[in-house]
Nucleic acid binder design. Structure first.
Lengths: 147, 147
DNA sequence: GTGTATGCAAACCATTTGCAAATAT
DNA sequence: ATATTTGCAAATGGTTTGCATACAC
């Protein structure tokens, strides 16, 4: 799926989500979503704020934080809190499900996938009568081979 | 392993860790470790600060944070950042490896285990030439059955 | 004796909050 | 018409930092 295709698809999903919850369809919310889906990779709120300011689209940080909560809830965006204090975000519809390994020395992030993760999530939730909304799996360490 | 047994074992491990890194074996560091291993369950820095103050053992918050970093590094303690801003800690040597499900409505935390998790970690790290130090797996959602 | 560790308080800074003005419905 | 959303700036609060004193080695 190209970035352009994704942008119209997620726009639709967001509109339905807002409608279903009787939240208002403000231009700011769609502009933020569009900015996010026009880019690749991880980003933080400050970068997003600057990206939009550079395009002369003025949104307050408060609105960014507020909108991210909505996008998290409807799963169009994922939030990560790796080592740092500053949260990192990434769009959801891009490269399929994946998890992260974080090099704690360089801060570099590697993505990986394993189909068994979903099985684990599902069996743990069934056993404990738990309804999962989302999960996070991070491996911290450093790049290199065993010596 | 009883709490008392664990306390002497981890005391030994910590002493070796400090020695190996030429860090000083201060009474504060051992008092903090001992306080942690005398309790069960999750705790935050503020609680730990108060527990020790109640026993008339005065340690500064700065020393608590500093010592937690050491204990994390030698894996005697695990740090969690569930939803909230305040980090939660738990001693490592108590009930074996486990992961967490967090009820985002009540804040309640359920523990679970799955032996396949280690297999996933190991295969991901081998594939990517990565040396794991620790990992975190959280499932967020709410208690209840599928309707 | 020397340099690390502690304690205190101030600084930090990402995020949250309060409130008036704007606006989606 | 009106209740939600926005923007701004100030407040928040867990964690970090700087520096003088204490102390492990």
């Amino acid at each position: 799926m190209s970035n352009e295709d994704a942008r119209s698809v997620v726009n639709q999903i967001f509109a339905e989500y807002l409608g279903a919850h009787a939240f208002r369809k403000t231009p700011e919310r769609f502009a933020i979503l569009d900015e996010i889906y026009s880019r690749d990779g991880h980003f933080d709120i400050e970068s997003l704020f600057n990206f939009m300011k550079d395009k002369n689209y003025r949104v307050s940080r408060a609105t960014l934080y507020n909108t991210m909560d909505l996008l998290l809830d409807c799963k169009l965006v994922t939030r990560h809190k790796f080592g740092r204090n500053q949260a990192q975000y990434e769009k959801t519809y891009r490269a399929g499900q994946h998890d992260h390994m974080i090099d704690t020395e360089s801060g570099k992030v590697i993505e990986f996938t394993d189909p068994r993760i979903n099985e684990i999530i599902n069996s743990a939730c069934e056993k404990n009568e738990f309804l999962p909304h989302h999960y996070s799996l991070y491996i911290y360490g450093k790049s290199g081979r065993k010596e």
